[in-house]
């Protein structure tokens, strides 16, 4: 082909025409091999559970026992309430962290450090046994009473789990606040907004798009974290299950019952969390 023809844009005819050939698919040996191995392992595990020392009739019997049902209800209630406290605290502390006031900033940093640094079970026990340090609770003019009457298992669990969650949420919210374009702060200030108003009207709503999906994940974690509240005598599902097996010695059966319920709750929540993520990702997706 002449160079003149090439310059005109004509295609070279030196290459073979393969447009009529058929693609042959290779048999995916590796895929079948790994799948077989995994299926075999799973079969072994299932068989072990099926033929092992678990009395499945006991599992079935207690699966919908009243204490178990009220236990899982208490689990969900505690998870929801503690998460709500955690989110409120997290937002407040994240805002404190960005304050020009150094005392507020340091307090925020200190809060996150303390409550992320102590194990949750320790926090729960400290709240429950707070009366050893503060025997009475006094709100001047409103209430005065014994700490042990105020710090019930429910309140100990709520404070322990909620305040702990707040420390983690504050970091998520802080990342969300930082993720909002600086221009948004500037535009808000330019129309005369102070920092707090700008946060409330402009920044936080945009930050929430980035903050809420990971919080969905944290909520699922909180469902399971509530099991720690059993050590302060809060009757969530693990407490209820263990109370039963303390009486009838069916330890593995009742643990299976509790495990099944946790899986049920998390299985229901997971697609909901994905829906939540997708809903918030809508606004973030680039349109232009």
């Amino acid at each position: 082909m002449s160079s003149a023809a090439a310059r005109d844009g004509e295609l070279s005819d030196a290459l073979p025409d393969i447009s009529g050939l058929r693609v042959v698919r290779r048999f995916p040996w590796e895929r079948w091999l790994t799948a077989s191995v995994i299926v075999a392992l799973l079969a072994l595990i299932v068989r072990a559970f099926a033929t092992g020392q678990i009395a499945w009739s006991v599992v079935g019997r207690f699966l919908v026992a009243p204490q178990i049902l009220s236990g899982i209800l208490n689990t969900i209630v505690m998870a929801v309430l503690a998460m709500a406290i955690g989110i409120v605290l997290g937002v407040i502390v994240a805002i404190m962290r960005m304050s020009p006031n150094p005392v507020l900033r340091t307090t925020a940093v200190g809060y996150a450090w303390l409550f992320r640094g102590l194990p949750v079970i320790l926090q729960l026990l400290l709240w429950f046994n707070l009366a050893l340090i503060f025997p009475t609770v006094t709100i001047p003019g409103i209430y005065s009473g014994r700490m042990v009457d105020v710090m019930t298992p429910f309140l100990s669990a709520l404070l322990g789990l909620g305040i702990n969650q707040g420390a983690y949420t504050s970091e998520v919210v802080r990342a969300g606040l930082i993720s909002v374009d600086a221009g948004q702060y500037e535009a808000a200030k330019s129309i005369g907004m102070t920092g707090l108003v700008a946060l409330k009207r402009i920044i936080l709503p945009q930050a929430m798009k980035v903050v809420i999906p990971p919080l969905g994940n944290e909520f699922i974690g909180m469902i399971k974290l509530t099991s720690l509240a059993s050590v302060v005598q809060y009757s969530e599902v693990l407490y209820s299950a263990s109370s039963i097996y303390y009486a009838n010695n069916r330890v593995i059966e009742l643990l299976t019952v509790a495990g099944i319920w946790y899986l049920v709750v998390v299985t229901v929540l997971t697609p909901l969390q994905m829906l939540l993520e997708r809903y918030f990702a809508r606004g973030v997706a680039v349109h232009r």
Partner: peptide, 14 residues
């Protein structure tokens, strides 16, 4: 939960 827990609750007055 256990013996020390019960005794702690007794000492606190719970």
């Amino acid at each position: 939960e256990n013996s020390p827990d019960v005794r702690t609750q007794l000492k606190q007055g719970r």
